[in-house]
Amino acid sequence: MTQHPTTSSATRRRPANNGPKAAPRNRAALVAAAREIYAEQGMDAPLSAIARRAGVGQGVLYRHFPDRAAVAAAVLEENVREVEQAAGADAFSFTAVLGVLTWHLTESAAFIGLLHAGEATGRSGVRAYALILSQRVERALRKRLPEDHPLAAGGDLMLAIAMVSGAVSGPTRAERERRALAAWRLLGVAAEPVRPFGG
């Protein structure tokens, strides 16, 4: 008896390879997929899961991102760069920079994972790169941190951010923002307005 492929197996075929024309689209799909996978499984999620979610083979993923750290960089660089830009803007106070940071916390579970890089376990390449990005965030924030601020002492700044990021949960962005601002208030710190840099 001859077996014919079922409809479900036929529909699961990979999309046709469109060559170099597809490269920008594939890269964007991989970054979007990595954001989703990191949000669901954390930053140690298998790269094969990211490729599958993006609808490409692992070879395509490796053409764009030679290793795990490169994927993490692509996903998190924008978050970190906006915090750095806000901290470098003369018009932004420390409170405003914390508002930008808080916006990113409510938008990206992967960014939260980044800020816990010092405690992270798992693959060392991702952990090492996440630690570098986390240090960049801390340096940016300290540029605007007043010397007499309650978070100026020792490691209090990053500890407070870790505490707030731990409170960022909820099914909607509005709920996550509400919880983050409540956590800042409990710490006696203002962090507003919550918005992206330039938003």
Rank of each mutant, 00 (worst) to 15 (best):
A152Q: 02
R12G: 12
H104L: 02
I161H: 01
H4L: 15
P150N: 04
A33C: 05
M43A: 09
A86T: 00
R176E: 05
A29Q: 11
A54D: 06
A162L: 03
E84Y: 06
E147I: 09
A72S: 13
R35V: 01
A45G: 07
N79K: 05
E82D: 15
R13L: 10
A190G: 02
R12I: 04
S8N: 07
I112Y: 01
M158C: 11
V71S: 06
W184Q: 03
P20F: 11
R136V: 06
A70G: 05
R53N: 05
F111A: 03
R144D: 03
A70K: 04
A182L: 14
N26E: 14
R173L: 10
L47T: 07
R139N: 11
E40D: 13
R27N: 05
A160C: 08
L186R: 15
A152S: 10
A174P: 03
T6N: 08
P5T: 04
D67N: 14
R176Y: 06
I37P: 01
G19W: 00
R13I: 05
V56I: 04
S48N: 13
A74F: 03
G199P: 12
S93A: 13
R12S: 15
A174I: 10
V83D: 01
T7W: 13
P171S: 14
S93P: 08
A140N: 01
L98C: 07
E78Q: 11
A87I: 00
R173F: 02
L131S: 13
R127F: 05
R53L: 09
M43G: 08
V137Q: 00
V60C: 08
P24V: 01
P171I: 11
G88W: 03
E36N: 08
F94K: 06
R178L: 12
A190L: 04
R195E: 12
V31M: 07
G88V: 00
I132P: 00
L114M: 08
G188T: 02
V164Y: 07
Q3S: 14
L141S: 00
A72M: 02
V75Q: 02
G198Q: 06
A160K: 08
G59D: 12
A69T: 01
Q135Y: 04
E192M: 09
T102A: 05
E84L: 01
T2L: 15
A128K: 11
I112W: 01
T2P: 10
A22E: 09
L115M: 11
A72P: 05
H4Y: 13
A28V: 08
P193L: 06
Q58M: 14
A174Q: 15
G42P: 11
A153H: 10
I50N: 02
L105W: 03
G166H: 09
A190Y: 01
A49N: 10
S169T: 13
R179N: 15
P171Q: 15
A117Q: 04
G19A: 01
I161R: 00
R68M: 06
L105R: 07
A16L: 15
H4G: 12
P20C: 03
M43Y: 02
T2N: 14
S108C: 08
V137N: 02
T102Y: 05
A33Q: 00
R53C: 04
E40Q: 13
G55S: 06
G113T: 00
R185V: 06
A73Q: 15
A87F: 00
V56G: 06
G122T: 07
M43K: 03
E77Y: 10
G125K: 14
A28I: 07
A74R: 10
Q41S: 13
G88A: 13
I50S: 06
F65K: 04
A69C: 02
V83L: 05
R136G: 03
E177R: 14
